[in-house]
Nucleic acid binder design. Structure first.
Lengths: 301, 301
DNA sequence: GAATGTGATAGATGACATCTATCAAGCCTG
DNA sequence: CAGGCTTGATAGATGTCATCTATCACATTC
């Protein structure tokens, strides 16, 4: 049985005339006669009583036509819903973001995203890199904003912008007197985030392993770390987008001699079909952040 | 779009594996891949994200699959309902019957019909010949039991049994002394039904036109006529099946010399598709009435 | 009785679903 | 890490079947 045949039934039932029903269906009258007869043979039931005077639905047809209408209506609904879904820049877009980026980046890009992609419902999901990647692979996220390189064979990514790190110092710290700070000089009293945050690893990689203070402090968020630094408990590196929040907390910021930093990338499954949405979101974020990293630090692990 | 394709979608969504879905659908894996891709192109929406590891429905697929399920379910409903409707000996069967036949025939054949054709819901419709034929032509009846010949090009019929007429006399009537009555002898004081009843015309045809009494009496039913005869108001012809009722009313019955009578036929539209039901009903009635007309009077107009 | 209108039939044709054979990519194991 | 296994994609051949045009058969109408 075929949806086409079902539409033929409806046409005949409506016009009660093979010629006009065929015309309305865009086929010839013989085709319609043959197809209807085949369908009747398939169903084992006569659907219309024909004569040269009139075409009248049988009782069996009356019983069936409700289901026929419903089937055709559902098929049409599929087409019409698909039409609205056709735009890859529409619908839910679940975007994972790491915690050291989300609170500072989202306020910047939310309005531009909404303006550029009004039909795209961007749903941010804040979590650590490994959890985000898991969810990405499990199709529970559509894309993610990460600061690590991890193109596996199943994932693809594209850099959006370079984010330099800055030295975050208590105002009374000796290094605060310098205009530029050497990364290694921070190692002595550096504070880092709890395990799992990529910024922790990147900070330690840039400054050299110390972890004397980092081992005792379990800072789950960057803002905790900032407050600790402001209180004179130690120093740290912060990503450039957090500069505003750090200064608000009363922290002294200094550029780094080796221009350590990280590159924020958008990551997606290589097979993800809505590549257009990924590119569009990436474009908007990259445009908003253009010119942010004058230093142009790139690609720390 | 095709129902087959929709079933493919459901198979893939269920198995999440092209090979197994193809096997379950009874086709090869390449066919399934090609068909799904074509459907995706038609809809303009990716339905599944494929990799050699997993096949995952897209968000668009999740939105659509409800309609897909509904469409397929309705199509299945068509097939299943058609299967129950397939038996022509099942369902409503609207049967017109003339008033001079219905009250005497129906009690005889109702039980045999029910036993022989338990799935056929015979709905008797009592009316005069012309009204019945109109309803038959208007598809408001499926068949009719008539006592007249009227095979037009659009109607067909088949004789079921011959029903002899009997002379109905008041007990004190002079003719009641005879064993056999000549049809013409009844003409003087014969009573007939109101216009429109075929029995009226048949009676007048058999006995010769008189109508002196018939003109003043407007008897709408045979039982009225019987009561008039019993009261000595006149004589009449009655169809054989009414003999029992006539005798109960205290009427004397006598056979007719020329064996006037009528043939009861089942009539249907020549194009009516449930010919099997017509034949089956006719068979049951003819079998029940077999041996009824020993005289074998046939075919008065 | 010719003209008109109706659905059914016959034979030709083209589109397309399907097949087998094969490839490309990724995963697992020894 | 190489080779085998699994998975979906691709290519080319093939047969089915929907569709067409031309025509018929039948009934109605003027």
């Amino acid at each position: 049985m075929n949806l086409r045949d079902l539409r033929y039934i409806l046409a005949i039932a409506e016009h009660r005339h093979f010629g006009r029903a065929a015309e309305a269906s865009g086929i010839s009258q013989p085709t319609l006669s043959v197809q209807l007869r085949k369908l009747e043979e398939l169903l084992g039931v006569a659907l219309f009583e024909r004569s040269s005077k009139a075409v009248v639905p049988t009782a069996a047809c009356e019983r069936l036509i409700g289901h026929v209408r419903a089937a055709v209506a559902e098929a049409d609904a599929i087409l019409s819903v698909a039409l609205t879904l056709r735009d890859p820049l529409a619908g839910r877009f679940r975007l994972g973001i790491i915690p050291t980026l989300a609170p500072y980046l989202l306020p910047l890009v939310f309005a531009p995203l909404r303006e550029a992609l009004p039909a795209l419902e961007v749903e941010p999901w804040e979590d650590q890199t490994s959890a985000i990647v898991d969810r990405l692979r499990a199709h529970e996220l559509d894309a993610a904003l990460l600061a690590t390189d991890l193109d596996g064979p199943d994932l693809a990514s594209r850099p959006l912008f370079a984010e330099p790190f800055l030295a975050a110092l208590p105002p009374e710290h000796p290094l605060a007197a310098r205009a530029v700070v050497e990364e290694g000089e921070l190692a002595r009293d550096i504070l880092v985030l709890a395990e799992g945050h990529c910024l922790r690893d990147q900070t330690l990689a840039a400054c050299g392993q110390s972890g004397a203070l980092g081992g005792t402090l379990r800072a789950a968020s960057l803002s905790t770390l900032l407050n600790m630094v402001a209180a004179g408990y130690g120093t740290t590196l912060i990503p450039g987008l957090a500069a505003g929040a750090a200064q608000d907390a009363g922290i002294v910021l200094r550029p780094l001699a080796a221009q350590a930093g990280r590159t924020v990338r958008i990551v997606w499954r290589a097979r993800f079909p809505r590549r257009g949405a990924v590119d569009a979101v990436g474009d908007v974020i990259a445009a908003r952040l253009r010119g942010f990293a004058t230093g142009g630090a790139t690609g720390a692990v």
